[in-house]
């Protein structure tokens, strides 16, 4: 293992959010906000189902995945019972609020106000036939992977 203590501090991060579940979206947002709080330049790139976090109609109704999520420690059939995901989501939202993490919509505004750029993935937008008016106003643009790499020049890329 290399000694990293004397290494250059991180100046810039580009965070990719690719999952649309509540537990899939929050980590990327917390990392982006945390970067800005440390004075680190940050941008967020939402792709595939991660786009739900910046779609006006969906951003505040993301759910916790109770099926196919071993971290829930819940048998698959139990997780599939109607209402289970809503129940788990309610619990998580309550706990998240307790530690002062805002709901997704408010968090996106806060992160954008903090100076983090927010981008949507061109390929996903085309695939799902999304329109610019579907997105929340914080979205700075719909960009291709190539443009993402251009903007990420000099950054650490974090995929979530």
């Amino acid at each position: 293992m290399t000694q990293t203590n004397s290494a250059e501090p991180i100046q810039k991060v580009s965070i990719i959010v690719s999952h649309g579940s509540l537990e899939g979206v929050y980590p990327g947002l917390i990392m982006a906000n945390g970067a800005r709080m440390e004075g680190i330049e940050a941008s967020l790139f939402f792709t595939f189902f991660g786009l739900d976090a910046i779609i006006k109609k969906r951003m505040n109704s993301l759910k916790v995945a109770t099926v196919g999520n071993p971290g829930m420690h819940m048998p698959t059939l139990l997780g599939a019972i109607p209402g289970m995901s809503a129940f788990a989501t309610g619990m998580m939202k309550k706990e998240i609020e307790k530690i002062d993490i805002p709901p997704i919509g408010e968090f996106i505004t806060m992160i954008h106000d903090a100076g983090c750029q927010i981008y949507a993935c061109r390929a996903t937008v085309d695939m799902f036939h999304l329109k610019p008016s579907d997105f929340c106003e914080e979205v700075d643009g719909v960009i291709s992977v190539g443009q993402f790499y251009e903007k990420a020049a000099g950054a650490q890329i974090i995929f979530t």
Partner: peptide, 27 residues
């Protein structure tokens, strides 16, 4: 307090916080 509480309760919004205290307002 967290940035969120600062924003909600101090009367200074997030954008202004970052202008007043560049490179990491809470810290």
């Amino acid at each position: 307090p967290s940035i969120r509480r600062l924003t909600k309760e101090s009367g200074v919004d997030t954008k202004t916080l970052y202008q007043l205290f560049p490179k990491g307002p809470a810290k």
